[in-house]
């Protein structure tokens, strides 16, 4: 009992605090690449806490705006708790849960932005919905690959039974890409682009609500990257230790954090070298990835 409460507490602390800290680290890396001193690593935490103390501003005629940030926050936490920490899963731990939660977060953010009478929000919501849908289709195809190969959709079981076959490699690559798109690293950060549509889907929020929403997005990004890292960390731990022991859990967790950090750093380096893209480009690239995932599915049906 105490162990489970402890794990839940550690998980929530990691999700809420570490996610924001990673953003600060990314900012510092970017600054050093551009030969600047940059802000301190904890400045993102400071900013969000600052925002939470301000008065919240939303459009008066849409009460949904007041509840949407809280929904988004809780859904993001749920997403975070449904991915494995090491090998422990707190809630569900199913690939379908991830799809459902990501869709719900997008819905709860985009629907108010569509309803409000503000063109910038509408355009931002449009982009957000397109990005999510076109990224989730290849994800579902990869779920199909795993179902065919391993007959399960539980993340830990998939990770423990991973084999090095062409379809599985394609599947992992597609998942790595989809996680990048859904986390909205550049060049995919167009639903909130500042210079074009002035904060896009977030443009009608102010103060406390904006703080909660930003936090929710950071947690969502962190959870997705944790998910991908666990798919890499668990097989490697299994390769080294073999049995599922207490040491195995800790080692898996350590590997997961290492992969998470590597993923964030690589994403930052890629961000440094790209400009923002346009929405029709996103659809094109995601379409290509869908075809790749489909190819993987065909290969898996043939036993490869």
């Amino acid at each position: 009992m105490i162990a489970s409460v402890l794990t839940i507490a550690i998980a929530i602390a990691l999700l809420t605090i570490f996610s924001v800290l990673m953003e600060g680290i990314r900012g510092k890396i970017k600054a050093r690449l551009q030969q600047r001193i940059g802000g301190s690593i904890v400045h993102e935490i400071h900013d969000i806490l600052d925002l939470l103390t301000l008065k919240g501003i939303t459009p008066e005629e849409l009460p949904i705006y007041v509840v949407a940030p809280y929904f988004a926050f809780s859904l993001s936490l749920a997403l975070g708790l449904s991915v494995p920490f090491g090998k422990i899963v707190i809630v569900s731990g199913n690939m379908l849960t991830i799809i459902l939660l990501v869709l719900s977060i997008t819905a709860i953010i985009s629907i108010p932005a569509m309803l409000v009478n503000n063109v910038y929000s509408n355009i931002g919501a449009n982009r957000e919905i397109i990005i999510t849908f076109t990224a989730l289709i290849p994800f579902m195809l990869v779920c199909g690959i795993f179902l065919v190969k391993f007959n399960t959709l539980s993340i830990v079981e998939i990770a423990e039974s991973l084999l090095v076959t062409p379809s599985v490699i394609l599947g992992l690559a597609v998942i790595g890409y989809v996680v990048y798109v859904l986390s909205e690293f550049a060049p995919f950060d167009i639903s909130r682009s500042n210079t074009e549509i002035i904060d896009g889907i977030f443009s009608e929020y102010g103060g406390r609500f904006l703080g909660i929403l930003e936090w929710a997005f950071f947690i969502k990004r962190f959870s997705l990257v944790m998910f991908f890292s666990s798919l890499l960390a668990i097989p490697i731990t299994k390769g080294i230790l073999g049995v599922s022991t207490y040491g195995g859990h800790v080692l898996a967790f350590a590997f997961q954090l290492v992969f998470l950090t590597l993923y964030y750093i690589i994403a930052t380096l890629i961000e440094e070298r790209t400009a923002r893209t346009r929405i029709n480009n996103v659809i094109k690239v995601n379409g290509v990835v869908t075809l790749v995932a489909f190819l993987g599915l065909i290969l898996s049906l043939f036993g490869l």
């Binding site: 900012g27 009478n117 503000n118 909130r192 002035i198 977030f202 443009s203 009608e204 102010g206 904006l210």
Partner: peptide, 21 residues
């Protein structure tokens, strides 16, 4: 005619000064 009236327009400008990362 989907114009913004002055209040909404001003609020847009207020939000525009918030910078994202």
């Amino acid at each position: 005619t989907m114009t913004l009236d002055e209040y909404e327009f001003n609020m847009l400008s207020v939000k525009a000064s918030k910078r994202w990362f």
